[in-house]
């Protein structure tokens, strides 16, 4: 059984918890997020015939007052950077977080998620802005459910490939 720890990071209010709620049936109360700063969920997925258990660490959103608790990132195999398409500043925050995480954990797989696709006509984030980073990107709507499954499965595929590469002989 292959298991991977995945962290959901992003500015406060970008929809991280809503995305997780769309993807899994949680057993823990969401108040955990405001008390200990993290809520953990589990999702078993299968990609290309390979099973993977994703342990999703939904980290409390970073804002002016609260900083991301890097100790929760320890041991993560990948992460999901979430930005709100309606707020361009959240994309900048996502980029800033990506740099900090890379400094802390090294280069590990991740995907960028631009959420709130259901409000596309109100988006401040332009495609060109996203493209400049060159990161694997998904557009999702936690409200409508579009793109959520694909995003998680996409990250799972990246993780499986990364795992296979690290386990290959000669490494």
């Amino acid at each position: 059984m292959l298991k991977k720890k995945i962290c959901m990071v992003g500015q406060f209010g970008v929809g991280k918890t809503s995305l997780v709620r769309r993807f899994v049936d949680s057993i823990f109360d969401e108040r955990y997020l405001t008390t200990i700063g993290v809520k953990i969920d589990r999702k078993d997925v299968s990609v290309d015939g390979k099973s993977l258990t994703l342990m999703l660490w939904d980290l409390a959103g970073e804002d002016d007052l609260a900083q991301l608790n890097v100790s929760h990132l320890r041991g993560a195999s990948g992460y999901i950077l979430v930005a709100d398409g309606c707020r361009a500043s959240t994309l900048e925050k996502a980029a800033e977080l990506q740099q900090r995480i890379t400094q802390t954990l090294g280069p590990i797989p991740f995907v960028l998620v631009v959420n709130k696709a259901d409000l596309r006509d109100q988006w401040e984030v332009q495609s060109s802005q996203v493209a400049q980073y060159g990161w694997p990107t998904f557009e999702t709507s936690a409200k409508a459910g579009s793109g959520v499954e694909e995003m998680f499965l996409g990250l799972a595929a990246i993780l499986i490939r990364s795992h296979a590469a690290s386990e290959a002989p000669g490494q």
Partner: peptide, 15 residues
């Protein structure tokens, strides 16, 4: 779910 319990346990220790 023991998977989630173990994760939360680790998180609580960090906390």
């Amino acid at each position: 779910d023991p998977e989630m319990v173990s994760g939360m346990l680790t998180a609580i220790q960090d906390f």
